[in-house]
Design a protein around this nucleic acid. Structure first.
Lengths: 218, 218
DNA sequence: ACCGTTTATTAGCCATGCCTAATCTTTTTT
DNA sequence: AAAAAAGATTAGGCATGGCTAATAAACGGT
């Protein structure tokens, strides 16, 4: 059995490995609102359990076993988010904290039954893929909106940050998963871009925002 | 904020106070599968927080504040049990452990929404009352089947023990919440009684069983 | 190639929540 | 009433998972 803290560290490493190919002590500490020295200790412990490969001073990767655990946690987290939004009527900006607690409830049978109850969803309310029972993630070819060029027409597939602020900003502009928009202009100066939704007036998005929007060709 | 262990101790005290008018260190320890000395430490801590009144050597009671917390925990526990059985299709003998974990998820909004989603249930799958948002418990006039006399006709209202063994035994005899049965004979020797369900043949129940069946007049 | 900055690690401390063993209290037996 | 038993508390120890301060390694700019 893993402790809650061990699970949190594995999840943090997994999340960081999505963007970079090695995870660093400092970033893990920041994510967990803890200190680098605490993280070093935990990495040592997880390395002994063969869940991570830790090269001191050079960052950490997950072993196959560690990744499998991370995928289960991601599965549980996204499944509960789906339940909270689709069944209980929470807003997509309200569910992260609660799911963070629920994901640590350990029962395979529970998640299997929940999966069936929700109709075996492949994506959570933020558009992120839900790993299946065996940890398989349904592949999609998406890219960041920030990498798109003038004239591209795209559909929003996922929002890769679950802070209240970003989600509420999208709500206020009428953007949600599935929204289709075309890129009007990209400003080299600050990376901001003007986009026009299918119906409605064009508006501008900062690079901070477009960077976190995963889109697919529309 | 309370820790998980603090919550567990408060719940144990509450449960013991249902049957006796003071809770003892030894019994709390047994319930929590821990040792008496650990319980003493925790009681001291809870007493400082004004959640229990602890008279060393003479047992412990809950303060109003402590009882309010216990009622919230009971509410969460029974609400999740209801969800697991009524929505996810778990058997009533399978849900205790999982609910034990889920009850520690802290979010008032979550429980409010779950309450509405389940249709504001007043009783859980074992027939136990679910305290409302303010901790009020819907009163019923029930008694233990073991206190009934020959000729009484009663309906099973609740099962006051959530061990797999008892629940499966009831399942095997076709007994569930709402079952109606009449008392044929009570044996003074061992306290066992012969009962006859509305439809079907009579059978015998040991005192261990009848003691845990809460019934109301049918 | 060196020096300063950034990042990691180690060493040592602390709180929590558990434990065992020893020492009370209270209750029960004789 | 004294002895024994049962139960509760205290004293002291241990593992976990945090922390700060001190040290070590890697990196970036000159």
């Amino acid at each position: 059995m893993l402790t809650r803290s061990e699970e949190d560290h594995i999840k943090a490493v997994y999340a960081l490995l999505q963007d970079n190919d090695s995870a660093f002590t400092k970033d893990i500490a920041e994510r967990l609102r803890t200190k680098a020295s605490s993280v070093t200790d935990m990495l040592k412990k997880l390395a002994e359990k063969k869940l991570v490969k830790h090269e001191p001073y050079y960052g950490v990767k997950l072993t196959a076993k560690g990744e499998a655990i991370a995928l289960q946690l991601v599965r549980r987290h996204r499944m509960w988010e789906t339940f909270l939004v689709n069944r209980l009527g929470f807003g997509w900006d309200e569910v992260h904290e609660v799911a963070e607690q629920m994901e640590h409830v350990a029962s395979d049978k529970l998640i299997d039954k929940l999966d069936a109850y929700l109709g075996h969803p492949s994506f959570d309310p933020h558009g992120d893929p839900i790993p299946d029972k065996h940890g398989k993630i349904r592949a999609r070819k998406t890219k960041r909106l920030s990498t798109c060029m003038q004239g591209d027409s795209v559909r929003i597939a996922a929002v890769s940050e679950t802070t209240d602020g970003l989600l509420r900003l999208l709500d206020s502009k009428g953007l949600r998963i599935g929204s289709v928009l075309s890129v009007q202009e990209v400003h080299a100066f600050d990376g901001s871009m003007d986009v026009k939704p299918k119906s409605g007036a064009a508006f501008s998005l900062s690079k901070d925002v477009s960077h976190h929007l995963q889109v697919e060709a529309a």
